[in-house]
Computed example of a mutant assay.
Amino acid sequence: MYQEERLLSILDYLKENKRISVEQICSLFNISRDTARRDLVKLEEESKIVRTRGGALLPSIHTEIKNYSHRLNIVSDEKKVIGKKAASLIYPGDRIILDASTTVQSCAEHINNTECTIITNSINQAEVLSSNSNINIQLLGGILEKEHRYVYGSSVIDKLSEYNVDKVFIGVVGISESGLTIAHEEDGAVKRKMIQQAKQVIALADNTKLGNTDFFRFADLQDIDLLITDKTPPQAFRELLHKHHVELLTAEINDQGDE
């Protein structure tokens, strides 16, 4: 095997296993330790790995969180099908909290003319719902985060403490063994309070969010009751959910005739 082929294979291994040792490289490709080290040096020079004592890791990648309008323009079929499934769980008379994520906005867009009360800190969600005459909308007041279109601050958290609701729908940037995470602490603080005020906590996350961990943890896995996603997660992730008593609901695109 040529070096370039080995380098690609090493990167593939790292994507699956996160780390690799010199001994593993020698065993996988039947090469000497010196050759394995030269391969790692080459990959490091190309900024594709981080060398460690005895092996290598993939470099950390922090995904930039685009502003809300940009994220709305690229709302995926996955988010739409998750939103539709989530909306089907809202019944007449329900009292609901919707957070300020684009996946949760997909839920708002799919709510039928159901008589219910919805509390939100999202000016976009309030606008989407305002055309529905049967929905009573409670828009929380506070500091406006202009780029991401949500309201936050102590006044929001204090007002939330006055409400007791049936369900809350929460979006995430990452959901993993580390819990539910988000990019911005002020957003996470509001989500945390929303969770505390609901009888049932429903997290909405497309498959790209599963197993990821972002900057600020606002909830533990055991704090949620149901996860709605678009693809059946790997067995290890399903076992993680089962361990923390989280129910799983999969809304696959192929199962939705009009998606």
Results as ranks from 00 to 15, higher is better:
Lys18Pro: 00
Arg95Gly: 06
Asp258Lys: 14
Leu14Asp: 05
Lys243Ala: 13
Lys85Pro: 03
Leu11Trp: 03
Ser32Asp: 06
Ala87Ile: 04
Leu7His: 13
Glu247Asp: 15
Gly257Asn: 14
Gly142Gln: 10
Ala87Gly: 07
Asn207Cys: 07
Val50Ile: 15
Tyr152Met: 08
Ile143Gly: 00
Gly174Pro: 10
Lys193Gly: 01
Gln3Asp: 13
His244Val: 00
Ser88His: 00
Asn121Arg: 09
Ser106Phe: 00
Asn132Ala: 09
Tyr13Pro: 02
Ile253His: 09
Leu226Tyr: 11
Leu180Tyr: 04
Asn134Ala: 12
Asn121Cys: 15
Gln3Asn: 12
Phe237Ile: 11
Ser154Ala: 08
Ile135Ala: 06
Leu28Ala: 08
Ile96Cys: 12
Ser27Glu: 14
Arg217Ala: 12
Ile82Val: 08
Ala219Met: 10
Leu43Met: 09
Lys231Val: 04
Val190Ser: 04
Ile74Arg: 06
Gly179Leu: 05
Lys15Gln: 07
Glu46Arg: 12
Val246Trp: 06
Gln138Lys: 15
Arg192Ala: 13
Gly179Ala: 08
Gly188Gln: 03
Asp12His: 12
Gln222Ile: 13
Lys193Pro: 03
Ser154Pro: 01
Asp187Ala: 10
Leu89Ile: 09
Leu89Gln: 13
Thr52Ala: 10
Ile143Thr: 15
Asp94Trp: 06
Asn124Glu: 12
Tyr152Glu: 05
Tyr91Met: 04
Ile123Pro: 05
Glu45Arg: 14
His244Arg: 04
Ile119Gln: 07
Ser155Thr: 14
Gln196Phe: 08
Leu241Lys: 03
Asp166Glu: 12
Glu239Trp: 05
Leu14Gln: 07
Ile123Lys: 06
Ala189Tyr: 06
His62Asn: 07
Glu5Ser: 12
Lys18Gln: 13
Val168Cys: 13
Leu226Met: 11
Thr181Arg: 04
Ile175Tyr: 03
Asn112Ile: 06
Met1His: 03
Glu259Asn: 05
Thr208Cys: 07
Asp225Ile: 02
Ser9Tyr: 11
Met1Pro: 01
Tyr13Gly: 03
Arg217Thr: 12
Asp220Thr: 09
Gly188Lys: 01
Leu89Thr: 13
Ala205Val: 05
Ala251Arg: 05
Gly188Cys: 07
Glu4Val: 10
Lys243His: 14
Val168His: 05
His245Leu: 09
Tyr91Gln: 11
His70Trp: 10
Leu8Val: 10
Ala100Ser: 15
Val81Ile: 13
Ser133Gly: 09
Glu23Asn: 14
Lys146Ser: 08
Thr117Lys: 13
